[in-house]
Amino acid sequence: MIRKRLIVLFLAPASLLYGGLFLLPTLSTFYFSLFNWSGFGQDMTFVGLNNYVRLFNDTVFWLSLRNTLAILFVGGFFVFGLAFLYTVLITSGIWGKKFFRLVFFLPNVVSVVALAGMWAYIYNPRSGLINTTLSTIGLDSMAKTLWTSPNNIFWAMLAALVWVFTGFFLILLMAGVDKIPTDTYEAADLEGASLWQKFWFITVPMLWDVMTISFVIWMINAIKMFEFPYAFGFLQVPQQLYTLGIYLYIMGFGQRDPIYQLGYATAIGVVMLVLTFVLIVVMRRLLRREQLEF
């Protein structure tokens, strides 16, 4: 029905721009992952798959991968748990829905460095918000907790991260809920359905599409996660906060340490790409099957 000419005409601009300025250039750099190359000059040594072997034996790489997966799954659990909870609460008929929606989204428009500065104040061991509050209400032993000590800093960062992203996905989920006809809920109310039952038997199935998109967006963002944990480290990102994105950046481009191992960094990039792709495919499979049930 759609003629070939139109197909070509409609696809050409996007394909050219995307292929020429993004896909081919980046895929071509993946070729560097087979070399030892500093990025300076022409001095490249072919090392085959050595960079990948090295990744496999690199403690810091595994640490970064673990952190990335922790953000993806643990962070994702809380982001979506809270986003769902607040979607249900805000759409339960309380007054000021639009206002709350605006406020929840706000962290997404503030520069991450400013957010990191604020959270550093919140977590500060002595003068910080949490610990001063705790000691004011008499919880002196808890007020001694060092939220940003090396054993806690990753989780402290993740909590802040969840706060930012919950608002983003809340917007998407609320948009989905608004689309559900109100009489569905009214009918459920008449039958005496609880809030939980309404959520599970009406909201979730009706939200399936928006959830799929949200999950995919979260996954891609989580695997590439860079900005927020990076800003959380101000001068020097502590290793406890390394994600794959940060490690790639530090090995190939970054900060002030003259590491410059572009070949190795691109190998990390390849791993990230493969990881994303596999997860997208798996997600699509899982969600497609579910979709058939409804």
Binding site: Y123, N124, P125, L146, W147, T148, S149, I153, F234, Q236
Partner: peptide, 10 residues
């Protein structure tokens, strides 16, 4: 002891 929780520039 609380230095373990100090984030630059605390």
């Amino acid at each position: 002891e609380e230095s373990r929780g100090y984030q630059w520039p605390a």
